[in-house]
Amino acid sequence: MDKTVLAAASFDKEKYYINSEYSALPESIKQEIKEICIPLAEKLMCTFIIGFGDGGEVYFETVKSDEIPDFDDIGAELEIKRTAKEKKELLKALKLWYLIYKTDEGENVKKRLLEGKDVLAEE
């Protein structure tokens, strides 16, 4: 699976990164992404990543720090599932944005949207 990092926050390095390739995202969306990454990195004590996979699928990923030997893999997975459920609309909007602006089919996606078709359901 091809993956591209959209944003990441590091608990131990206390840093936040958003990929400049996605600078065209609306500021409110970038802020919401930041408000997901930083608290989750702190809560899970890891580097927390949001990115795009194949076909614009949004993924969440955790990277354990060697400094935190008792990382809770199960707790992290549950927290990711909870966040994905709570942020379902954001994830849908991100995927749609990706399909429109970052794929060769972007113009076709826009056209189908204007025709009132549910683009994400057609995949």
Rank of each mutant, 00 (worst) to 15 (best):
I18F: 06
S28P: 02
T83N: 01
E86R: 13
A24P: 00
G51P: 03
F11C: 13
I80L: 12
E86M: 11
E35H: 13
D104E: 15
T83E: 09
T47V: 11
K88A: 12
S65A: 11
I18Q: 15
K85W: 04
I36G: 12
P69V: 03
K85N: 11
E67W: 01
A93G: 02
E86Q: 15
E32K: 15
M45E: 15
V119K: 09
Y101G: 01
K92I: 06
I68D: 07
G53I: 02
K43P: 04
W97S: 03
A24W: 00
A84L: 08
L44Y: 03
I18A: 10
D70S: 11
V109I: 15
G51N: 08
S23T: 08
L99T: 03
L25C: 10
D73V: 07
K81W: 01
D66A: 11
I49H: 08
E115Y: 06
S10W: 05
E79T: 15
E79A: 15
G56S: 10
M45G: 02
E107Y: 11
D54Q: 09
P26R: 08
K64C: 07
S65Q: 07
P26S: 12
I74V: 14
D12W: 06
T47G: 07
A121N: 06
I74H: 09
A84F: 01
N108K: 14
T83F: 00
P39Y: 01
D73Q: 12
R112V: 05
I33Y: 05
T47C: 08
Y22G: 09
L94N: 07
L40I: 06
E67G: 03
S23F: 01
K102H: 15
A9M: 10
L114V: 00
E57D: 14
G56F: 05
C37E: 12
P69N: 10
K34W: 04
E115T: 03
D104Q: 14
T103M: 13
I80E: 14
I33V: 15
K110A: 08
K15F: 00
A7C: 14
A76I: 06
I33R: 05
V58R: 03
E67V: 06
I74D: 13
T4V: 13
T47F: 00
E42V: 08
I29A: 11
Y59G: 09
I68A: 04
L90Y: 03
G116M: 06
S20W: 01
A8V: 00
L94F: 04
E61I: 00
D73C: 06
R112I: 02
I50G: 10
Y22W: 08
T62D: 10
T4I: 13
A121D: 07
E14I: 00
E57T: 11
D118Y: 02
I38E: 15
A8I: 00
E35A: 09
E89C: 01
V109L: 13
V119D: 05
L78Y: 11
E107G: 04
I68G: 05
D72W: 04
E115H: 08
L94M: 10
K111W: 05
Y98P: 02
E27G: 03
